[in-house]
């Protein structure tokens, strides 16, 4: 298969902005044209081959090797193709992405998939903050697509997101789902404080107990029907969430009443031994 392979030759001294490293830009370029591609080192324009050894040409499959944690904007606005990164990657990975997929075997910086409208990003390591968020001053964050982080995540993930899925395998920091307007965040290992602050709509699913703001109130304990469908969707991405009512149920908290919003936080509670499982329906119980 024809693949464009880039190997980092030297670490840049200051951040390098490489929005040109996107399948949309590279797929019709010859080897010489790729080498001459313009990237931004601080305030200076440089060529791709100043920093990378380039192999291959005319492909929408891009492979990058090396620690590129100083490189920003990889895969910006890409509409298709595939980027694989072996190493850590810097900020704004896949920002404004409209399609295709990005896989990172390493850690990623802040703003992964910010304001993306479709596509798939999979980070095998940890990610920074503001995953799938809306940029400062923007009213909406990610609008569709999926971001999967196997490790931990930073502050304000899913800030102002409208649609789509964010899955975080490790713990997330404060303000997960801040000002969320829709979509789903799945926290497999919970989050620190202020999860779902100011959320208007959308769903945050946590498989471990998380501290909630006083503006969220307990609604009921149930096994949501939509979650079985959603679990099917997640299983295609390699994520499994418990949906068996015999194993436990979800506590639903609604909020944030300070907005006032109609967001939902679902927290998984496994059944304790001796507890009788409920098969259907929703039961209102006091928390």
């Amino acid at each position: 298969m024809n693949i464009i392979t880039l190997r980092l030759k030297e670490q840049p001294a200051v951040p390098l902005e490489v929005e040109v490293l996107s399948p949309d830009v590279l797929k019709n370029l010859s080897h010489a044209e790729i080498c001459a591609g313009s990237i931004q080192l601080g305030k200076r324009q440089r060529r791709i081959d100043d920093f990378f050894e380039v192999e291959g040409e005319r492909s929408d499959q891009l492979e990058i090797h090396g620690d590129i944690s100083r490189l920003k904007w990889v895969g910006r606005s890409m509409t298709g193709g595939r980027i694989t990164i072996h190493g850590n990657v810097g900020m704004h990975l896949g920002a404004y992405m409209q399609g295709g997929s990005i896989e990172v075997h390493g850690n990623a910086g802040d703003w992964v998939g910010a304001e993306m409208s479709n596509g798939l990003i999979h980070i095998h390591g940890n990610a920074g903050g503001q995953i799938g968020a809306g940029y400062r001053g923007s009213m909406k964050g990610m609008q569709d697509g999926a971001i999967i982080v196997d490790g931990s995540a930073g502050l304000e993930i899913g800030m102002r997101m409208k649609k789509g899925t964010i899955v975080v395998g490790g713990p997330a920091k404060d303000f997960a789902g801040l000002d969320m307007k829709g979509g789903n965040i799945v926290l497999l290992a919970g989050a620190e404080i202020r999860t779902g602050a100011w959320m208007m709509r959308g769903t945050i699913i946590s498989l471990t107990p998380i501290p909630l703001l006083p503006t969220f109130h307990f609604s009921c304990s149930y096994s949501p029907v939509f979650l079985r469908l959603y679990a099917n969707f997640l299983s295609k991405l390699g994520i499994s969430i418990p949906v068996d009512p015999k194993a436990g149920h979800y506590h639903l908290y609604s909020g944030d009443t300070s907005v006032p919003g109609k967001g939902e936080i679902l927290i998984w509670r496994p059944l304790e031994t001796g507890q009788i499982p409920r098969t259907t329906g929703c039961t209102k119980v006091d928390s």
Binding site: R194, A197, W198, L212, L213, P214, T215, F216, H217, F218, D256, T257, S258, V259, P260
Partner: peptide, 22 residues
């Protein structure tokens, strides 16, 4: 601070807050 401000925002709009956490 953030919790208190968020509670105030809810109370200003006559929205409920979780009394146990206040």
């Amino acid at each position: 601070d953030f919790e208190v401000l968020t509670i105030l925002r809810a109370l200003v709009k006559n929205q409920p807050v979780d009394r146990t956490q206040v």
